[in-house]
């Protein structure tokens, strides 16, 4: 066994064939550890979502191998991958992934209906407290602001104690103040829950809160910055973090 929650080895993804062929992902390898938070930035259409959905077992790669918590999901059918997702993966999406007819507390209760081993009551209350949504427990998603909804989405994703937390542009629908706030909460909650976390964003300012920054360009993933301290920062790369909005593809 390894401490890597996510291991991707030489993963490729090609859509279509012949003239319409799109190589969305070229040979990509990526490992993420427990408690580690990484960001993937890059222009629109560069393959970020493709990478994330393959990492979460929502689609299979064309080549290479993916392991979640040591299990080779590349060989599993949809039913078993669904089980792996339920057991190990939490998703946070761009727009709210909440069920419109459930209150905030019922959103979490739904997970109790389908899975054992979710958070205990005091642990859950702590999480809601930390995300500042304790008072929203009885409200429906429609009555929440965008920022509140994303915080609930984070709570929902973490509630099932996932070992892998995947967020695809979780702040895209928020203004920048809210975006910073949500990002900060996401990071601290994920670290506290010891989940391996990948955040896809095209907002480079948000990467202040992560351990490593990867950049995706045309299906190729580079390490941009490693602030974890173990590896030295690659020279000439850190200034990218200050560059601002010109990576914004959307």
């Amino acid at each position: 066994m390894t401490e890597h929650v996510l291991q991707m080895d030489d993963v490729t993804k090609t859509f279509g064939s012949g003239r319409t062929e799109v190589r969305a992902l070229k040979k990509t390898s990526l490992d993420v550890n427990r408690g580690e938070v990484i960001a993937i930035i890059g222009p629109s259409g560069s393959g970020k979502s493709t990478l994330l959905t393959i990492a979460g077992g929502l689609q299979g790669p064309t080549g290479g191998e993916v392991r979640i918590a040591g299990e080779r999901i590349t060989e599993l059918g949809e039913k078993d991958r669904s089980k792996v997702r339920l057991e190990h993966v939490g998703f946070i999406l761009q727009s709210s992934n909440l069920v419109p007819f459930l209150t905030v507390s019922d959103q979490l209760k739904l997970l109790d209906k389908v899975k054992k081993g979710n958070m205990k009551k005091d642990e859950r209350d702590g999480l809601l407290e930390e995300l500042g949504i304790t008072k929203l427990a009885k409200k429906y998603p429609n009555d929440l602001s965008g920022g509140e909804r994303q915080r609930v989405a984070i709570a929902k994703a973490l509630y099932s104690n996932p070992s892998l937390l995947l967020a695809d542009e979780p702040t895209a629908s928020l203004d920048s103040d809210r975006a910073f706030e949500v990002m900060k909460l996401l990071k601290s909650a994920a670290v506290k829950k010891n989940a391996a976390t990948i955040v896809v964003t095209h907002d480079t300012r948000l990467t202040d809160y992560v351990d490593k920054v990867y950049k995706m360009v045309d299906g190729v993933l580079h390490l941009e910055a490693d602030k974890g301290g173990a590896e030295p920062l690659e020279e000439g790369r850190t200034d990218f973090l200050e560059k601002g909005g010109n990576e914004d593809g959307i």
Binding site: G56, R85, E87, N97, L110, L111, V114
Partner: peptide, 15 residues
């Protein structure tokens, strides 16, 4: 899309 999100979460079609 709501069902899709739930399925992404790992909630089974059967449920």
């Amino acid at each position: 899309s709501m069902f899709g999100v739930m399925k992404a979460q790992g909630i089974s079609s059967a449920y």
